Simulated scan of single mutants.
Amino acid sequence: MLSEQSAATVRATLPAVGAALGEITERFYAGLFAEHPELLRDLFNRGNQAAGTQRQALAGSIAAFASLLVEHPDRRPDVMLHRIAHKHAALGVTPEQYKVVHQHLFAAIVEILGDAVTPEVAAAWDEVYWLMANALIAIEKRLYAASGQTGWRTWTVAGRVEETADVATFQLRPADDGPVPDFRPGQYVSVRVELPDGARQIRQYSLSAAPGSPLRQISVKRVQGDTAPDGEVSGHLHARVHENDTLELSAPYGDLALDATDAPLLLASAGIGVTPMIAMLEQLAHIGHTAPVTVVHADRSPAAHALRADQEGFAAKLPDADVHFWYEQDAPETAHTGRADLSAVAVAPGTHAYLCGPLPFMRAARAQLIEKGVAPADIHYEVFGPDLWLAQD
């Protein structure tokens, strides 16, 4: 990992660099997009840039990686690296782009920290960057090779289902009538659309049906912002994409994927986080999983709960399933009122948990599961959008 001299320098400068990472990443993106506007137009999520969440996620990942290098030099943060690499592969990130990022990131570091960036400090943080970048490049290379797909593939909308007032399911088949590649339940695809201003924006959507079907299915919630901009791509899909239209999709990626296991499982979701759980539940019903399965979901109301019938139907096919729903309003007698609370939910020993939903929901669920004896290594999560978990630790 880090050389001994660089480790000492990074350890000494980490507080100062960490404190300035917000300014550094803001300046980095400004410089990057000024020189390469095509990256903002066709690669980066413009909504996340406007909201500042991508800057927070980048700062959090850099700080976390550097801290782990100096605090645990014998360990590599593979969980974090694999999550980032899957996101990058779904966007089509290339090794050459890491050089462009390096150029603008270090220009921003020098601009913000000034004379504090001595040659020794620059060399140490350069080593941090390339350790992280080269690890990601290697993982992404393996992911690209395993996917069997280069670039984007065109799919035709075979059907559209209005699940709720703001969630639509798109059933897709390959436009070339070629085979539908396999994937692991819980994974997502990137969808690229051309917007009215000519930008080709990309978003990730979980596959909401299990593998094995001749169709691929995504369920998209229309994002309508209060503190952030409305979703450009989700709004486009809801307003403009109908049966017989086409979409460009990446290969499937994502590290929140159901493992082949006989262990008890807990699948906890909130809002549109239900989508990967549906694929997992369908797969479990298909293979005849016999160990206990606990299904947890929280939503605003039953009317807002997308794919509820699928969630209940697949759980009913399992021999030992327990379903718990929470609604903030209009909860029926069979559900709980309020936000999800796992304190009274029975959790079998040896349970593996999968979480997807807003970050506060997942943090609370993870804490309660650990209190119940679930091993932290057996709790897996997926964040829709920039991963702010590390940024908020």
Results as ranks from 00 to 15, higher is better:
Leu237Thr: 09
Leu266Asp: 07
Gly254Ser: 09
Asn244Leu: 10
Ala239Trp: 07
Val220Lys: 01
Pro264Ser: 08
Met280Lys: 02
Arg222Lys: 15
Thr261Trp: 11
Pro214Leu: 13
Ser269Phe: 02
Ser269Thr: 09
Gly235Glu: 05
Gly273Arg: 01
Pro276Thr: 01
Gly225Ser: 12
Gly273Leu: 07
Ala263Ile: 00
Val241Ala: 10
Ser250His: 03
Met277Asn: 03
Asn244Glu: 12
Pro276Arg: 01
Leu249Lys: 05
Gly273Lys: 04
Gly225Pro: 06
Arg240Lys: 13
Tyr253Gly: 03
Arg222Ile: 00
Thr261Val: 12
Asp230Met: 13
Met277Ser: 03
Ser250Val: 02
Glu232Gly: 04
Asp259Pro: 02
Leu265Glu: 09
Val274Pro: 01
Thr275Ile: 06
Ser269Val: 00
Ala270Val: 05
Met280Gly: 03
Asp245Leu: 11
Val274Asn: 04
Leu249Ser: 00
Leu267Glu: 00
Asp262His: 10
Pro264Val: 08
Pro252Gly: 00
Gly231Ala: 12
Met277Ala: 08
Gln224Trp: 08
Ala263Arg: 14
Glu243Thr: 15
Arg222His: 12
Ser269Gly: 15
Gln217His: 12
Ile272Ala: 15
Leu215Gln: 15
Ile272Asn: 03
Leu258Gly: 03
Gln217Trp: 07
Gly231His: 04
Ile218Cys: 06
Ala263Met: 07
Asp245Ser: 14
Ala228Phe: 15
Ala263Glu: 11
Met277Asp: 05
Leu265Gln: 05
Ala239Asn: 11
Gly231Gln: 08
Gly254Ala: 10
Arg216Phe: 03
Ala270Glu: 02
Leu249Gln: 05
Thr275Val: 07
Gly235Ser: 14
Pro229Cys: 14
Ile218Trp: 07
Pro229Tyr: 10
